[in-house]
Amino acid sequence: MMSRLNLWLVLALIITVPLSLLAGRVWLDPLHPAILGALPILLELRLPRAALALIVGAGLGASGAAMQGYLRNPLADPGLFGIAPGAALGAVCSFWFGYSAQPFLLPIFALIGAGSAMALLALIAGREASVALFTLAGMMIASLAGALTSLAISLAPNPFALSEIVTWLMGALTDRAWSDVGIAAATVLPGLVLLRIAAPALDALTLGEAAARSLGVNPARLQVLIVLGVGACVGGGVAVAGIIGFVGLIVPHLLRRFTDHRPSALIVPSALAGALLLLLADCLCRLLPLAGGELRLGIALSLLGAPFFLALLLKMRREIG
């Protein structure tokens, strides 16, 4: 059975996806006969791009919801807490293994990087720690991964790869092919399944770790599910689209009021709304007139997300103080 919230989100996606295919530098009129001539644009450029936005957004949204539930911290986000930077570090390291092996190694390294960052965070989260400690630990992992990524780039063996890495890191969905969609789907979709399996245990964790264990939750199993699930969702997303932050922060926060506040009730809606948000943001980037190309998706979401994060912090401060 589908909840009313999910139904609304699916409906929004059904309306948005076809519209997003028509929008762009070249607007397509579905009623005009020239639409047939534009089919290559649709099939080879816009369709894979929309598919990527949906898959990557779903992974980021669900990961954010799962991380918030697992860490019991409404500020958790794969980008802010170092999971996406960890994936980026892994991906950049793959450039060291030569150009020929790189397309095949990059997603694997990104997955390992994201999984390791999540495992490190979970290691700290394994003990009963405060929201503040988790937030600091996440920020620490993020800045460490960022620093190591800069180091790896500055030591890069091939200077031609350098500029490519830097632009890719900024996060975008431009000029992606169906092969990228394949990589994203093969990693993100299994990740979503793992997070969905972990969901009931996240509910029990609302009462703290001891109470969750008294409800029959196996913390080690939950940790494995979260590390693999978030690792696959975020690693796969970063591998094809670079770092896109704040989706996992914004989406669960906006949706929580429409649910009964159980973490498990947020996973699927966050995946749907994450897909919707990224699709809309990508359309906006495509349409905004900007000299020398288009606004990078990762930058756009950071511009949107940072003030959001600040507003959230101020709200929490009011509630605590």
């Binding site: 019991r72 609302t206 009462l207 703290g208 109470a211």
Partner: peptide, 12 residues
Amino acid sequence: YLPQAGEVAWNL
């Protein structure tokens, strides 16, 4: 089992 803190992380 009810632990000491009686923590409820989310506003259920």
